[in-house]
Nucleic acid binder design. Structure first.
Lengths: 351, 351
DNA sequence: TTGTACGCGTTATCAA
DNA sequence: TTGATAACGCGTACAA
């Protein structure tokens, strides 16, 4: 049982001028002040100017809390991201912000730190703050979609981005991970590499599965067998990529891969380190491709071939879709796919 | 004159269960529901459980808008940053978020895009939303501190971070740019370089001035003359660093610098490109040091010596100070300085 | 232990 | 063109 701390009016609160106070000072009604300040409804021009002048002089700042209460509209959007530092999300936020700024919506940013419970708390808070809509990129550890389903059932406008939940009845903006992974794998195969390995992400995250599938499909399309020992779980981080690559290098020489497709760039960085520590050359001994065009990819000792994810565009489109939902202009549920772009650099050895 | 769009209750609003509705359903008063849900004041345990169960079944979500209105407290902090993509800010936000999450505050994130007007609008919006406090990192183009002064005069808790305004009567968390720049310059001088240039930031931004001063103080401390032609304005970006370095390389051979201290890493990257395009070697022909420990610094063809700014720590301390202000635990105005750390790599040629 | 009355700051509505 | 009233959903203060 929690302690019974008494609620009380905030002692430290800033005392603000209210519309009523302006009204009293001017000997008019609060309603007229409201009309003047919002320049709405019929109002005598002279009155309007008097009110605006008084408001300015008195340092009036309209109370959007009260406004939101009566209008049932906060002009605020909640954003839930699983990671702040990973460069994809700052970029995506920039895209979101670009759209919401123009439409005069504000952003409440929450961070799940890849934790399901923390994500659920964040969503609850956003609900309590009555945001007009929510943008979510799902945390890795989420297994239960109940919270999402409840939101959707209630009718809270919601758009998933980057990490989506299929068939849940909500719109979603993402890149085509499977197709992109297939294409980059095909790029390596086309160059003649036969034994190609995959450093795979967590299987319970959709992008992990999708990229693995793309990898397999590319092999299948060429009738190449996918050797199980060449598909190693690396997770999304550098350390996992390093460990996974070491396992591959521990295989008998004949079984070692000639090329590697990593689930993302950090994993590729780890793998590159493992390769070089072994004294092997990239791409002469082992070619490698990443995924995500991390800002560091171009600056590696051997620049990394990768797939560029248009994060800004993903954020922008997700925000646009959400505003469409909120304002009823675009009520349909959509799955929006943003195309990726291959960035061919030295690490794949394809000239 | 703006069009008179009639206000109306939001048609698309989600209809939520209210405390009163739970009360009616249970045949009790709204007040008892409030007490049950907040577990506050005297309440019969049985009643409490009944209410909590009903609330859960009916999908109750407390309306924090209404709560904020009556309590004059939003449990929300406004953050104003000038740049989203620059890795310093995501890191700082992570530090802020870490603190505010634990204290159960939410973050409204706004972005000035280095634009003074946009920053002012952001602050106004945050005021209207009645955030409990504001964290600001000033936009480059801000010349007039009136908006800040008004906030401070009214008593809005506010803490500047990274980019501060001296003597304005607000707390501030930043790194010691001048001292750090002095130390990194001294590091180069200690290695025997005599002609050292500085690629300087905008003079009207405090960190630009501070780093320049630090550079000059280091020279002065060794009795070395600061040649005006070796201090070139580069701004904060790669392109500016590139252009500035080209100007230095256009000087007569004898006047060219043996080493360069850049105002930040992006400027240093630009300079490195200019040096290498000229066919000169780093550090054999020209040594260089940056500032900020950009994620790319370690991965340059010649790894860049630089100064690490503990962005996370800056954000964390700023948020802590703000919460102290908001809750009256730490009302004093403080200028908090976070120490930097030198990261010595190959580009400075000091072994 | 529970309920009633009132207020938070604003806007919609309808009357003046 | 302006004003009075009620309402938004909740919490404080006090009464029952």
């Amino acid at each position: 049982m929690k302690k019974n701390i008494p609620h009380r009016k905030n002692k430290h609160a800033v005392n603000r001028v209210t519309g009523k106070e302006i009204a009293d000072m001017l000997g008019i009604s609060a309603m007229t002040v409201s009309r003047a300040i919002n320049n709405r409804g019929y109002i005598h021009e002279e009155t309007r100017q008097k009110v605006v002048a008084a408001a300015k002089k008195m340092g009036y700042s309209p109370n959007n809390i009260a406004k939101s209460l009566v209008l049932k509209k906060t002009h605020t959007i909640g954003v839930v991201i699983p990671e702040i530092t990973h460069s994809f999300f700052p970029e995506a936020i920039r895209g979101i912000e670009e759209v919401t700024y123009r439409a005069h919506y504000d952003l409440i940013l929450t961070h799940s730190a890849e934790d399901a419970k923390r994500e659920r708390d964040a969503i609850r808070t956003l609900e309590s703050k009555r945001v007009d809509g929510i943008l979510i990129s799902m945390a890795e550890s989420v297994e239960d979609h109940k919270t999402y389903k409840e939101l959707i059932a209630i009718g809270v406008p919601i758009v998933f981005f980057d990490r989506c939940v299929a068939g849940i009845g909500a719109s979603c903006v993402s890149i085509d991970d499977e197709l992109s992974a297939m294409k980059i794998t095909e790029h390596l195969l086309a160059h003649g590499y036969k034994r190609v390995a995959h450093l795979s992400g967590p299987k319970d995250v959709s992008i992990g599965r999708a990229r693995l599938n793309g990898f397999k499909r590319a092999l299948a399309a060429r009738g190449i067998v996918c050797h199980p020992e060449l598909v190693i779980d690396s997770g999304f981080h550098e350390s996992g990529g390093y460990a996974a690559m070491k396992k591959l290098l521990a295989l008998p020489k004949a079984q070692q891969p000639r090329a590697v497709v990593a689930v993302n760039d950090p994993a590729a960085f780890g793998a590159m380190r493992a390769i070089q520590e072994r004294g092997l050359r990239i791409p002469e001994d082992i070619a490698i491709a990443g995924f995500s065009d991390d800002i560091r990819a171009a600056m590696m000792p051997v620049p990394l071939t990768t797939v560029r994810q248009p994060a800004y565009e993903v954020g922008r489109l997700a925000a646009l879709k959400l505003l469409g939902l909120i304002e009823g202009k675009s009520p349909a549920i959509e799955e929006i796919i943003v195309q990726t772009e291959q960035v061919i650099r030295k690490s794949c050895g394809c000239h």
